[in-house]
Amino acid sequence: MGEETHAATETEETLLTLQGQANIWNYMFSFADSMALKSAVELRIPDIIHRHGEPISLTQILAGISDASSPDITCLARIIRLLVRRKIFSAHQASDGGDTLYGLTHSSRWLLSESPSGSEPSLSPMVLMENHAWATAPWHYLSQCVREGGFAFKKAHGREIWEFASENSEFNKLFNDGMACTAKIVMSAIISGYKDGFESVGSLVDVGGGTGETVCEIVKSYPHIKCINFDLPHVVATASKCEGVTHVGGDMFQAIPKADAVFMKWVMHDWSDENCVKILKKCKEALAEERGKVIIVDFVLKPEGDGIFDDTAFVFDLLMIAHASGGRERTELEWKKILQEAGFPRYNIITVKALPSIIEAYPI
């Protein structure tokens, strides 16, 4: 009996060791998933399949790639094979026993850039931005940040991300397009899950609002709200006109336009605790006679959380090391600390069907 137990223990330990090795191999090459996904977006494979309205063959997909000068169907097959394994695309044998046919899944529908109405949300711009060489380069400096501090993006490019964007129009467009697509997706969930939160607001300033997609979505659902889109001058310079929205350029560390409510989506996670307190104090000054509220849309980290987006939140925390200037994602206790330091003793966390949550902060 003892020998059997010992043998079973040895077998279990061997399997765990082997699984551990497999895990390291998988994590070592997990960037391949990102690169395969990026290539599918660049080749517009989801759009090609979508235009046919049904699953199609590799030959049909290749024929739909308009700028293919010397197409390699074997290369395409190998990329799609991995993405089928990752459940980005589906694959099944044609009814006549012919070619394998590839279709869309619930995942690849988030990569469509074409739609009949043009209103379907897409994560394609974010895929292209986050996987561009400019955006991936800072990730190679994480260990250097541990050894000597500093900011990964600046180590990679010689300047922080905001300065880099102001000097590089191509990156600025990539970045703005990525932020715009996530704004549309997140705001759809915010507007449907935070209805009561907007109804009593007469005026709202979106701090770090980019090119204005966020406030435009708010105004569409709540036309009574007078909205200001507030961001750096070079960012708002490319903003499109939107009924009910005024675009204002400025620096949130200096002054924020006054309003009943200050809205910040994925802004605070870009900054250190010290800078977040400074920003929140400027938000407090912007609230008329300290009435109103600050509406923060950001992650609330749950170390033991097993929700659908909880794992992604921890990846975003490392993204803040790679791209931000001292930014981070925060737990509820960490949010409470900076809110109280900035003069917001009362807060409320609201969960919505999106990556981030809503944190309402009140100055009184």
Rank of each mutant, 00 (worst) to 15 (best):
G20S: 11
D317H: 13
K282D: 04
E304L: 08
F89W: 04
F314Q: 02
E329I: 12
D96W: 09
Y347G: 01
L128M: 13
I295G: 13
D67L: 12
V245M: 04
A342C: 08
P223T: 10
I295L: 15
I73H: 09
N23C: 01
I358T: 11
C145T: 14
D47I: 03
V245N: 05
H132M: 01
M187R: 03
T182D: 02
V205K: 05
A32W: 01
D33C: 00
F175L: 15
S108M: 08
H92S: 14
Y222C: 05
R86H: 07
S34K: 05
S115P: 04
T246C: 06
V297Q: 05
E213Y: 05
C276N: 15
R147Q: 12
S95T: 12
E341A: 15
D306K: 13
G208H: 14
D260G: 15
N168W: 06
R81C: 03
H50I: 01
V267A: 07
F309Q: 08
K284S: 14
Y102A: 03
N176C: 10
R78D: 06
T5R: 13
S57I: 10
D47H: 04
S113F: 00
L123T: 11
H234Y: 15
L301H: 01
V84K: 08
S357V: 11
D33H: 01
K241I: 00
F253P: 01
K155N: 03
G327D: 07
I359G: 09
I225A: 09
C276R: 14
L76W: 05
D231K: 06
G178I: 02
V219L: 05
D47M: 01
L83M: 13
R44Y: 02
K353F: 00
S90W: 02
E329G: 12
A288L: 13
N176R: 11
I24V: 09
P121R: 04
S203F: 11
T100V: 14
Y222L: 07
E329A: 11
I190R: 11
R78A: 09
V248R: 04
G118R: 02
S70D: 15
L62W: 01
M268A: 15
H224I: 02
A183R: 10
Q93A: 12
T5C: 00
I359F: 04
Y141E: 06
T246E: 14
L76P: 05
S143T: 11
T14Y: 10
S192N: 12
F314P: 07
F175V: 03
S188T: 14
M187E: 05
G97V: 15
P116L: 05
L287W: 12
Y362L: 13
M129Q: 10
A7W: 01
D196E: 15
G20C: 07
K353E: 02
T136W: 02
V236I: 14
G212L: 08
G210E: 07
A40K: 01
E332N: 09
V277L: 12
A77T: 02
I279S: 10
Q19H: 05
